[in-house]
Nucleic acid binder design. Structure first.
Lengths: 187, 187
DNA sequence: GTCTATAATCAGATAGAC
DNA sequence: GTCTATCTGATTATAGAC
């Protein structure tokens, strides 16, 4: 993951992976058959990780709490697994050629479930009317930023590392603006 | 730009660039000296483009209008120059090794100017208190999303192309949520 | 299964004719 | 300046000893 996150698929070398794993290069090929298969496995693990770590967006409970929990889980993911987030980002940025139709289908379904919940909240008068899909993209984009654009974040805040306090502040600011922006001013 | 956007720096080939330019491969090397120099030039052009096309965030005028104009210019950039946006994204995702100290300095300065303006609005009671830096990141992340994650956007909305109406709707939703989130409910 | 040595390929860069 | 042919090095992948 580190090798692919740092150099991208094409730039990553089997030798680099082998060095990080402290194994001879042919062992990597022996275990995985080829470089593409290593990458496929890495991508699959990343999508599994995302499914495990992201709290679901469901119609139960109150909207404010569901969104808060989701945003915090998303920012925590960016903080704890930046390499995974960046590999995913790089894959999407370069066209998502290595995502299987199944993976795309899973994404679409998850997004549709979430936007359906948003729309339901709007219909029930719990939330200010906003486009559910673009709201979802806003939350994704804002939280992914702290992993994908970590370099730029560090440049702007002029620090060598993003501290836990920074991530906490980030999650709270996103929650704050999104909740107020959706008319969900609870606590 | 298309070659680098599609394959990343390492995956892009001089032959690929030559084919797109309908020129023999050695001409590219002759004009630019080497592949790295082509990429450096591309990056420089992208940063120039960003400076030209993004409306500045200044203390003049009313906050709502300044933010609206900025967000719309940012989404338009994502719509009109997706390749440029994605090369920049890929560069940052992979550590920004090719960004010169000058480029980083320019980014830092621009961000500081913007957050100073946000803070001024807060101090003047024009805006609900929010962390200025994270607000800036939110706007960046949300709007970049439509270029960087175009693949995912298309997967989720289940279309082959993001229409002009989609971009318009995206910009309006971001404006809507950000303005309300910052207590800037004008028109 | 594990590893050393090597083959095959591909891409960046150069030489040199025109 | 432009182009064909070629060199060099790096990288994936394999052969085959242990």
């Amino acid at each position: 993951m580190k090798e692919f996150a740092h150099y991208g698929y094409a730039g990553a070398t089997v030798q680099g992976i082998a060095d990080r794993a402290e194994l001879p290069k042919p062992n990597i090929i022996y275990y995985f058959n080829n470089k593409q298969a290593v990458y496929d496995k890495v991508l699959l693990n990343i999508l599994k990780l995302f499914q495990e770590r992201l709290s679901p967006i469901t119609a139960e409970d109150d909207p404010a709490q569901v969104l808060k929990t989701y945003i915090h889980s998303k920012v925590s993911l960016a903080r704890d697994y930046p390499a995974a987030c960046r590999i995913f980002a790089s894959e999407i940025v370069h066209g998502g050629q290595n995502l299987s139709p199944n993976m795309k289908q899973a994404m679409r379904k998850w997004a549709n479930r979430s936007t359906t919940v948003f729309q339901q909240w709007v219909d029930e008068g719990k939330m200010t009317p906003v486009d559910p899909t673009h709201l979802l993209f806003m939350i994704w984009g804002s939280s992914q930023f702290y992993a994908d654009y970590e370099t730029q974040v560090k440049t702007v805040i002029n620090r060598k590392k993003i501290s836990r306090a920074h991530y906490q502040q980030a999650a709270e600011t996103i929650c704050d603006i999104v909740l107020r922006g959706c008319g969900l001013n609870s606590g």
